[in-house]
């Protein structure tokens, strides 16, 4: 059977975001693109599961082909067996991304599990995993930090508010969205990187999947940097004086106490 991992390529977390002159998006010129950090947990979990199931691990990504292919190579170098890139414009929304990924998974078939990251750190949507599950008509669990697999089912811990955890049992096939804490992702070894070059990387277009309308249902516009904060007010004096002044300012100037 096959275990699928949906991954996305995002700007490195060190990136300083700059907005295009017409506010239609961000300047991409100097960005270093990396695999979405939460997707690394997803890849790792699929590889761990493979030691039990001997599944073929298929990584897939929908987005501008020339860019997303790097993260797929990284996943192959970590140990995934096959990769599929679905060439699509940057402007696709979560609905279209999920649709493209789900249709690809259906086409590949023989699904045991699908892993995704709990969110992509660029669009911050945290929705694609659940939407893929809906299109595949299988159960899902999100923000998962622990997973136990037995034939035909998984038991997962999902992180919710205030440090609480919900424990779910799901029948496979299912979609699991990985949180930090699920595992420690391996690095791609040098032999792994060499081997990855020979592994199959399939290219698909939306048309191959029978999707001809790539009009997003949701658009982002008027990008802005956060408003400049007024300069910091430094508070001097002894610790007693500083504490007194700070509390006074928070009460009477900022009015947040």
């Amino acid at each position: 059977m096959k275990t699928f991992v949906c991954i996305k390529q995002v700007p490195d977390t060190e990136t300083k975001i700059q907005i295009k002159g017409d506010k239609s998006g961000i300047e991409e010129g100097s960005i270093k693109w990396v695999m979405n950090p939460y997707d690394e947990f997803a890849v790792e979990e699929a590889l761990k599961l493979k030691t039990t199931t001997s599944d073929t691990v298929v990584v897939l990504s929908a987005g501008p082909k020339s860019r997303v292919v790097d993260s797929l190579r990284t996943a192959l170098a970590m140990g995934a067996d096959e990769a599929v890139v679905i060439d699509a414009p940057e402007t696709i929304d979560c609905y279209l991304a999920a649709k493209l990924l789900a249709e690809t998974i259906k086409k590949e078939g023989d699904v045991r599990m699908v892993f995704t990251g709990k969110l992509a750190i660029d669009g911050n949507g945290s929705s694609v995993g659940q939407m893929v599950a809906e299109f595949l008509e299988v159960p899902h669990a999100g923000v998962v930090s622990k997973l136990d697999f037995t034939e035909g089912q998984v038991v997962v811990e999902r992180d919710v508010e205030g440090g609480a955890k919900e424990v779910f049992q799901l029948k496979t096939p299912c979609v699991i969205s990985a949180n930090k804490g699920l595992n420690t992702p391996r690095y791609a070894s040098l032999p792994g990187i060499m081997k990855a070059k020979k592994k199959p990387l399939k290219e698909l277009t939306a048309a191959d999947l029978g999707l001809n309308d790539l009009m997003p249902k949701m658009k982002f516009k008027n990008f802005e940097l956060p408003p400049e904060k007024p300069p910091v007010k430094m508070i001097e004096g002894s610790p007693q004086e500083q504490a007194h002044k700070l509390v006074d300012l928070l009460m009477n100037e900022a009015k947040v106490l």
Binding site: V138, P139, H140, A141, V155, E157, V160, E161, G162, G163, A164, K165, E166, V167, F168, Q169, L170, K171, C174
Partner: peptide, 10 residues
């Protein structure tokens, strides 16, 4: 197909 077994409070 999906069942909440328990909730562990934080």
């Amino acid at each position: 197909n999906v069942t909440l077994e328990k909730t562990v409070q934080g």
